[in-house]
Design a protein around this nucleic acid. Structure first.
Lengths: 199, 199
DNA sequence: GACACTATATATCACAGTGATATAATAACG
DNA sequence: CGTTATTATATCACTGTGATATATAGTGTC
């Protein structure tokens, strides 16, 4: 096996927590709006997995007519599906191999001018700063809503938001320190090779 | 297209930076030993990609006999391959979709007992503490070696190590705060529903 | 009004990447 | 003396990504 199918559990979770049946399209929307900063799904996987899940009896399908639009294939979680979700939630998280392109590029960065790398780090840092501002705003709105504060999921959801915030913060700090380190090293190299005429 | 083939550039980078030809096995070893905390490769992808790269003329193959063992297919980077690597290094990093299982589970965690989630968070935190200790030791050894300090890659490599350290640190902090938040919320709930007999 | 873009909705395809397994010899460990 | 690790390539089933196809309705804008 390559690894277990996580899309399956994401679908079961999204359908369960919304407490109502939904289509593949609905599931994608829910992921994009609610959890996209740490979890992403796409149609290319959702649709085939939904078909497999129906075959396995973890969800059931009903078809809704949708005048002038494609039919809606609306899925509900079965008792078997609920059990499968709970069993997955109780299992330890699996280790997933990382592939971070920026550190990989830094590993080979001495092959290109430092200026190119510095510009890229500035760009990435600005992106993280933008996300950080968004996360903080989302968190503020989330805390302000009493409906959220009364939900049993409140401390868990707050932590997922906090994860995004800490992640962005550490990356910003790292980008800045990396920029400073590269510049400092450039300075060092210069002073080694070009001895300035001193007065 | 799904996304560009990163394995291709990892291979070009590893072969280029070692300044000598290498086999698929050598490339895997180099990845595992040097960059595995932010980049992972596996044979299932390396071997077919090497074949494709040879066809594209970015690497060339020579076969070494290896008595009592399979032949070694040893690859060297061509001028075309070098150009391709430099061109990739100069391009901005691509956004890659995240899939973090722990925050996903927290999103649905109200469906299982808090105790289960707390234990899992303790386990994950301990893992990160272990990695952090390792990263710090690797960094120390790296800085201590004068050969590293003299290399043009020094500031870049130091930053990749620092990335691992900051990443582990923020996750540990986040785990602890999440544990505390869940416990605090449990306390709140109890005091709401079970009014203790007061003296 | 023409044109572009967004939303609704499902489906498929090529490709990227993972992890298990097959094969097969040597070397080291206890 | 058996087990495990190392060297070395290769393949397979599967997971997951992003582009594209198809088709209609609404919304904004020049």
């Amino acid at each position: 096996m390559s690894s277990i199918n996580k899309t399956r559990y994401a679908i079961l979770g999204v359908l369960s927590i919304s407490q109502k049946p939904g289509s593949g399209y609905d599931i994608k929307k829910a992921c994009d709006r609610g959890i996209s900063f740490f979890w992403n799904e796409n149609f290319g996987h959702i649709y085939p997995v939904l078909r497999q899940m129906e075959q396995d009896g973890v969800i059931t399908k009903t078809v809704e007519e949708n005048p002038g639009r494609p039919q809606r294939h609306v899925y509900s979680v079965t008792a078997k599906g609920h059990d499968e979700l709970i069993a997955w939630l109780r299992r330890p998280v699996e280790h997933t191999p990382q592939r971070l392109e920026l550190p990989l590029k830094l590993t080979f960065a001495k092959m290109i001018p430092a200026e190119t790398t510095l510009k890229e780090l500035e760009r990435v840092m600005a992106e993280h700063q933008k996300s950080l501002a968004e996360f903080r705003q989302i968190e503020e709105q989330f805390i302000a809503d009493e409906k959220n504060r009364r939900d049993q999921g409140y401390p868990y959801w707050l932590s997922t938001l906090q994860y995004g915030i800490y992640d962005a913060e550490f990356r910003i700090k790292w980008c800045q320190e990396t920029i400073d380190r590269i510049k400092a090293y450039q300075g060092d190299q210069e002073s080694t090779f070009h001895v300035k005429p001193e007065d």
